[in-house]
């Protein structure tokens, strides 16, 4: 897990020298032996994480550890939004049909987002994680993932048939073209997100190309969910698709962090002209 020191300091004060910080993190079980200095003065260090510590797969989780270690409290995190008059449930109809594989399904709708390149601070965060910025909405998804450790997914609401979001097992013979352009055959033991007619994403693994964010996207549905870890692992192995989302989902994402992940994404999208539906959908 890559951790940007500058990003970390948004969540907790760090007033000890770098080498001491790394040595102390190592001694609380977060092995930290390598770091790089970025040209703009940030330090990015690489933390070796364990399979039983999904909480360490995001900056907030590491900040929590640092706070306990140094005695500094976590800073308050606020996610201000511009609200729409309508409630989320009035815009999308979310139905979780297979509750055994879906532990929590939360979401907001953000309308009127101007899709475009991310501003400099967001781009820097994405680059610190070793990724390339794509567009502001996709970058926000990644930033929320690396901040909270909670993967979220963003759908182009206009491409969600019937404005229905159905969490169910795939039906025999269903297929999906993923965001990476790979056509995959889905099986009845795989959990998908579907609209009123077909799968639009493989739950917790990867989204579908057809409902993905494009330059024309205006309205976004933010999904902040937690799926069954074993199911995610079996699915990503069967499909041979491993993503930052599936890595976290199969290790067990905190069901308690779903609302904040959704709120953080919604708040960031407001800075690109978005307005957020009232009341988190949460089931």
């Amino acid at each position: 897990m890559k951790i940007s020191l500058r990003w970390l300091k948004e969540y907790v004060d760090v007033e000890i020298p770098r080498d001491e910080l790394l040595a102390r993190l190592t001694m609380i079980g977060l092995i930290c032996e390598e770091w790089t200095e970025t040209p703009d003065g940030d330090t990015v260090f690489d933390i070796e994480t364990y399979a039983n510590r999904p909480d360490t797969l995001g900056h907030i989780g590491i900040a929590r550890e640092v706070g306990v270690m140094t005695g500094y409290p976590l800073k308050e995190r606020v996610h201000p939004v511009v609200e729409l008059p309508s409630r989320t449930s009035e815009i999308v109809d979310v139905q979780v049909l297979d509750e055994d594989l879906c532990l929590r399904y939360a979401g907001y709708v953000v309308k009127g987002v101007n899709v475009g390149p991310s501003p400099e601070p967001l781009r820097k965060k994405i680059e610190a994680m070793g990724l390339k910025p794509i567009n502001n909405v996709v970058d926000v998804s990644n930033i929320v993932l690396f901040a909270t450790g909670h993967p979220i997914h963003t759908f182009d609401l206009a491409k969600v048939g019937g404005r229905r979001v159905v969490v169910r097992r795939a039906r025999k013979g269903e297929t999906l073209r993923t965001l990476e352009g790979k056509d995959v055959a889905l099986g009845p033991d795989m959990l998908v997100i579907a609209d009123d007619s077909r799968p639009i994403a493989i739950a917790g693994v990867i989204g579908g190309e057809a409902s993905g964010i494009t330059g024309e996207t205006r309205d976004v549905f933010i999904e902040s969910a937690v799926f069954d870890p074993s199911s995610i692992r079996r699915t990503r192995k069967a499909l041979e698709i491993q993503t930052d989302a599936s890595y976290r989902m199969e290790r067990g994402v905190d069901v308690g962090s779903a609302p904040e992940a959704a709120a953080m994404a919604a708040s960031l999208l407001c800075s690109f002209g978005g307005r957020v539906s009232k009341d988190l959908i949460d089931g």
């Binding site: 364990y50 399979a51 692992r233 079996r234 199969e250």
Partner: peptide
């Protein structure tokens, strides 16, 4: 190590 435990990857 339960059957689908990610620690198996190590």
């Amino acid at each position: 190590f339960p059957p689908d435990h990610p620690a198996r990857d190590n």
